[in-house]
Nucleic acid binder design. Structure first.
Length: 330
DNA sequence: AACGGTCTCAACCGCGGATGG
DNA sequence: CCCATCCGCGGTTGAGACCGT
């Protein structure tokens, strides 16, 4: 059984909007708003249109402060960066570009930016300093931001090689935020020096209980540029640990994107949390009562902010708000 | 000028999630 | 908990503009 249509297609007008229709819709919404109900709006406004069509017309064209026309270099850069990190989540990307609609950005990507990216990737002497850093060597259209680079040093310690049964699967990350990732390819690689380098330890000075990631600002191919470690006391990795770890990474990516789109120019984001007390600690992280977890930004003289601050920051992007938090409370 | 191919972008479609009864 | 309804999103379509021959 198919889904019931939202309106009777035979009784509504379709196709391009006339200036008169635009005027009716604009006048009505400016006077009364949409009343929280797009379906009943056309009737009240005297329009022979489907409610969804009215909504789309308002949001994409009539709404005040909509920006039309050419995208700036800076906007291009933001789109590239966000697309590389989160894929075709146009509404999230649009949220970072005031005045732009998701539809606009989607069209712009499909007609211009993708070609720009492909042309810069096919040129062996690319002069585009903007596009090339976001290219993933394994994909022509940057659909696999989590695919690890082949340039990861072989000396990096990889616990999954020793415990192949504990590879995380792609299901988690792809279900969290739409990333595509091959099976067994989303694992974090381990830098043997990472715990020491970052002086991470739990309250017992025991790094076996911690997990961390370090991302630099090249979000697309971050496996090429970050180090991370992960293990537990037995060298085994439980499903929940993997979930926590991957969720943590998603939060860091989100935080990193937020900061960079706000003009932050530091080198990396790092994050870690403590496994010691199990899953409950993650709730403490969010509530701000935890003591063994953090996300830090920066290089030398870095500033830092706790995850609880991020969670309470309503201006933080929806990826963190809607995609990560449910994991902590489930 | 005429024609055909390509490009652009507004609009549509259908799905999944949220919400409320 | 179930179901109906609505909203919002991302993928797709197609009319018109544009361009090359």
């Amino acid at each position: 059984m198919g889904r019931a249509p939202c309106c009777d297609k035979t009784k509504v007008k379709r196709g391009p909007w006339s200036p008169e229709e635009d005027s009716k819709l604009r006048d009505y919404i400016e006077k009364y708003g949409n009343g929280g109900n797009w379906i009943s709006l056309p009737l009240k406004a005297g329009l022979r249109r489907c409610g969804k069509s009215c909504r789309l017309r308002w949001l994409n064209y009539l709404r005040p402060n909509i920006k039309h026309g050419d995208f700036s270099e800076e906007e291009d850069r933001i789109i590239f960066s966000l697309f590389a990190a989160i894929g075709s989540r146009w509404s999230i990307i649009a949220a970072h570009l005031p005045g732009r609609t998701d539809n606009d950005i989607k069209n712009y990507w499909n007609t211009k930016l993708r070609k720009k990216l492909l042309s810069s990737s096919s040129s062996s002497h690319s002069s585009s300093a903007m596009a090339s850093p976001y290219l993933n060597p394994n994909s022509q259209d940057v659909k696999r931001p989590l695919t690890p680079s082949t340039t990861i040093p072989s000396s990096s310690y990889n616990p999954y090689a020793e415990n192949p049964n504990h590879y995380p699967t792609k299901s988690l990350i792809s279900s969290i935020n739409g990333f595509e990732a091959e099976e067994k390819q989303i694992l974090p690689y381990i830098s043997p020096n990472y715990p020491q380098d970052l002086s991470l330890s739990d309250s017992n000075n025991n790094t076996w209980y911690a997990s961390g990631f370090l991302l630099n600002h090249n979000m697309c191919d971050h496996y090429n540029n970050h180090t991370s470690f992960s293990s537990n006391i037995n060298g085994k990795r439980s499903e929940i640990m993997m979930k926590q770890e991957e969720t943590m990474m998603m939060m860091m990516i989100d935080h990193h994107i937020d900061q960079r789109t706000k003009g932050y120019n530091g080198d990396f984001t790092q994050g870690y949390y403590n496994y010691y007390t199990g899953h409950g600690d993650l709730k403490q992280m969010i509530s701000g009562t935890g003591t063994n977890s953090n996300i830090n930004m920066g290089c030398s003289g870095s500033s830092s902010s706790s995850i609880s601050n991020l969670a309470e920051n309503k201006s933080s992007s929806s990826l963190l708000q809607h995609k990560c938090l449910p994991y902590f409370y489930s």
